[in-house]
């Protein structure tokens, strides 16, 4: 059997899922995407497009917000994840870093990191080793490790929660809006670390992001969500050259700045077409 006869199985495959909140609010209307082993995939879209919902559907945090996957399926390493709870998923290697950081404010930075290792049973030495690994990627939080996480800066909190996810030894990190509320330079620093984690530790990433410029620069493949649907996807380099993406997400219109009315009209038309 040759290599090519076996179709490569992606790490994560989302098949046409539909998500309804509270039994009435239809948020995702058929989203499909794939994350290959070792990929950095970005999920673009405006507020309310369904990025966070997609990530929470994967990590099974929807239930607690009374959301429900009503159609479609999600496969992780070829297995459907339907019945696994959030802790089960963490054990199997999917870890979500939620939007807005969500540090445990009254715990110290180091305790925050250690909570990430809750599901692990491989002993203190291994956990200590990973703690050192996290500090080597985020030397900034090493200095603040005894401080209450509620009092450290936004950037340090973001680093803490990414580090916390790493402590679970994940294969896939779902990173929700890492740039939120951070200075551009810090955002760059965090994405740079994401790239290194991907290359050196082999962690795959699915990143939901509004800052399309930076997300497409660091991602290999991108999906554009609009109103609960994937309206476009492709290689990051191709997407960033696409006229529509330039127009709506990168703010680089070919014909100069458009009036908002035209933009709205254009978007409405486009939605009908897709």
């Amino acid at each position: 059997m040759t290599e090519t006869s076996v179709p490569e199985r992606p790490l994560l495959r989302v098949n046409n899922i539909e998500v309804i909140y509270d039994h009435v609010i239809l948020v995702l209307k058929g989203v499909s995407l794939e994350v290959p082993e070792g990929g950095v995939i970005t999920l673009l879209g405006a507020n309310g497009a369904g990025k966070t919902t997609t990530l929470k559907a994967i990590s099974n945090l929807l239930q607690s917000e009374r959301g429900e996957i009503t159609k479609g399926s999600i496969e992780y390493q070829g297995q459907p994840i339907g019945k696994w709870s959030a802790p089960d998923l963490v054990k199997r290697g999917i870890c979500q870093v939620m939007e807005g950081r969500h540090c445990f404010g009254h715990l110290t930075v180091e305790e925050n990191l250690l909570t990430g290792a809750y599901t692990r049973r491989d002993g203190r030495a291994e956990i200590q080793r990973d703690l050192d690994m996290v500090y080597s990627y985020f030397p900034r939080i090493l200095e603040r490790r005894r401080a209450s996480a509620g009092y450290v800066s936004g950037g340090e909190q973001q680093m803490t929660v990414i580090g916390r996810a790493l402590m679970a030894r994940p294969k896939l990190i779902l990173l929700d809006e890492p740039s939120m509320g951070l200075a551009p330079q810090l955002v760059e620093e965090i994405f740079e670390i994401v790239r290194r984690l991907n290359a050196q530790e082999g962690v795959s990433f699915l990143i939901a992001e509004q800052n399309a410029t930076i997300a497409l620069r660091y991602g290999s493949h991108g999906y554009v969500l609009e109103n609960g649907r994937v309206v476009m996807d492709g290689e990051a380099s191709v997407l960033s050259q696409n006229e529509d993406v330039k127009e709506f997400y990168l703010g680089l219109g070919a014909s100069g700045r458009k009036s908002y009315r035209d933009v709205k009209f254009y978007r409405r038309r486009k939605r009908w077409l897709t």
């Binding site: 990590s59 945090l61 607690s64 709870s85 959030a86 802790p87 998923l89 963490v90 054990k91 870890c95 979500q96 870093v97 939620m98 969500h102 540090c103 445990f104 404010g105 009254h106 715990l107 909570t115 990430g116 809750y118 599901t119 929660v161 916390r164 996810a165 679970a168």
Partner: peptide, 12 residues
């Protein structure tokens, strides 16, 4: 501190 974040790191 934070129910959801606790669930996200795998604490049941």
């Amino acid at each position: 501190d934070d129910h959801q974040a606790a669930m996200a790191v795998g604490i049941p």
